[in-house]
Amino acid sequence: MLFRTVRELIDLAESQGKKISEIMIEQEMLVTKKSREEIIGQMEKNLQVMESAVEKGLNGVTSHSGLTGGDAVLLQKYIEKGNFLSGEFLLDAVSKAVATNEVNAAMGMICATPTAGSAGVVPGTLFAVKNKLNPTREQMINFLFTSGAFGFVVANNAFISGAAGGCQAEVGSAAGMAAAAIVEMAGGTPSQCADAMAITLKNMLGLVCDPVAGLVEVPCVKRNAMGAANAMVAADMALAGIVSKIPCDEVIDAMYRVGRAMPQSLRETAQGGLAATPTGKRLAQEIFGTPQKK
């Protein structure tokens, strides 16, 4: 194993003058004994799945429950009108993140990044910044390896599932991973990648997992939207030279401790938070006929 922490990852990349994506590929070769071509080929396939999911979502999908779908389309139409306030690439990232999660909610095919519930953030931001940075296919694949490197550290030092650590572990991790990968693609340093990840995750700390009716729909789709927005803004902050006062590894550790302190009702049991609101409970009743929880 070449690295276990963000610090080790950054030191390796900077001392060898390599990109984080390259360190991730080297570690994968070391651990799995697979060839570089095989590993890159597999990531290329994942990229294709992500691309198809974004495309499908932008054409409009609706979930079985009817709770989610169509919002990606609304956003694209809104962007086309040109009267938006925040920013074109930001909104494009948001709409593509929403598109992916709408496809996921509709039991469509997606690539988990790092989970299915948080699968929108990484591809959403990737396919938005693509229009600004005009990356090669190889650079797009590297975006996924960089995301994976940061997610790998989080998964092994904290958690990436809502049932274990709340939404901060899922969308929080995904947004941090995306922010770091955007920075690398935009030409930032490995340290700036870590700062972007840290800034993002700091702003997702404490986010609970409270799916209405236990479905990966409300509020998951909109959490992916804001995860993408968070990642885009944090990437810009890091590229501007803003440094995270708390190092990335310590932010990950804080996320772990916050997750451990979270009650079970806020960890994907559909018993607390938005799931326990009057409307949340009514929706569950309408969908299943009976409350999910007896």
Partner: peptide
């Protein structure tokens, strides 16, 4: 290290809606 591969993080390719569930 429970997660060994980058494809544990970027992957699996799957039918939604939940990677764990």
């Amino acid at each position: 290290m429970k997660f060994r591969s980058v494809f544990d993080i970027i992957g699996p390719v799957m039918i939604g809606p939940s990677s764990s569930h």
